[in-house]
């Protein structure tokens, strides 16, 4: 399980470029911080009101006035700052956050993302996700390819309430990477170790095309 999560997070971290301001959602996206490539320096924004988030403190050093959007204790790197929620979401909507990473329940070929509610079952609220999808310049969706029941999370069309319409730019699973192009929708660009292009076809309900230069064994666990 953790291998799947780290496989996704490690590939996602390869999307980072030096100097970016990024926001990491709860769950697998949080792990991206552990895989930032050498030589790449990014600044982490937390939507509850911090920029320049550093490593988690050890338990004895945690402080109730210094937490992230999941409520976990944080530290700041030198130069980081704290601010209120109106300012924080102004940063997000205003295009000052370059890249966001979030998990999802469903994502479809039009870039629609449904991540916050299963009607009648899971009613938690959208939190900051709608603002992040609308405002971040690039949206990376990190998800396991299939649900526990084996059905594809990359669906033909989202059936749960949308968090964002047409906002997904990159989808990264433990099996494949799809990138959305303006003219041709999602393109399968990379297949992880242990899978073939046909394997991906068999477990993906979303519309996509296969790149002429699709990379096999592009990432994932070493044999």
């Amino acid at each position: 399980m953790s291998d799947i999560k780290n496989t996704i997070a490690a590939r996602a971290a390869q999307e980072l470029t030096d100097g970016q301001v990024i926001n990491l959602g709860i769950g697998v996206p949080t792990l991206v911080a552990n895989h930032v490539p050498p030589g790449v320096d990014v600044v982490i924004h937390s939507e509850n009101g911090a920029v320049g988030v550093g490593p988690a403190p050890d338990a004895l050093c945690s402080d109730p006035d210094r937490g992230n959007a999941g409520g976990a204790p944080i530290t700041l790197i030198a130069g980081g700052s704290y601010f209120d929620s109106a300012t924080s979401f102004g940063m997000i909507r205003g295009g000052h956050v370059d890249m966001t990473f979030l998990g999802t329940l469903q994502v479809d070929g039009e870039g629609n993302i449904a991540s916050y509610e299963i009607p009648g079952k899971l009613v938690a609220g959208m939190g900051g996700a709608m603002d992040l999808l609308a405002g971040a310049k690039t949206v990376n969706v990190l998800t396991e390819h299939c649900s526990k029941d084996g059905s594809s999370k990359l669906v033909e069309k989202c059936t749960f309430p949308l968090t964002g319409a047409g906002e997904a730019d990159v989808i990264i699973t433990e099996r494949a990477l799809f990138r959305r192009h303006v003219d041709k929708g999602f393109v399968l660009e990379e297949v992880a170790r242990g899978y073939t292009v046909d394997d991906i076809k068999a477990c993906t309900d979303m519309d996509y095309t296969v790149s002429d230069a699709v990379k096999l064994n592009a990432y994932g666990l070493e044999e």
Binding site: M130, A134, G166
Partner: peptide, 29 residues
Amino acid sequence: PQGTLAEQMRSGGAGLGGFLTPTGLGTVV
């Protein structure tokens, strides 16, 4: 949405009737 809620409260205190946001376009919001 979290950012909309913050701005609604800020606007309420700042004498504004509301504001325009891209957040939630194409959703139930």
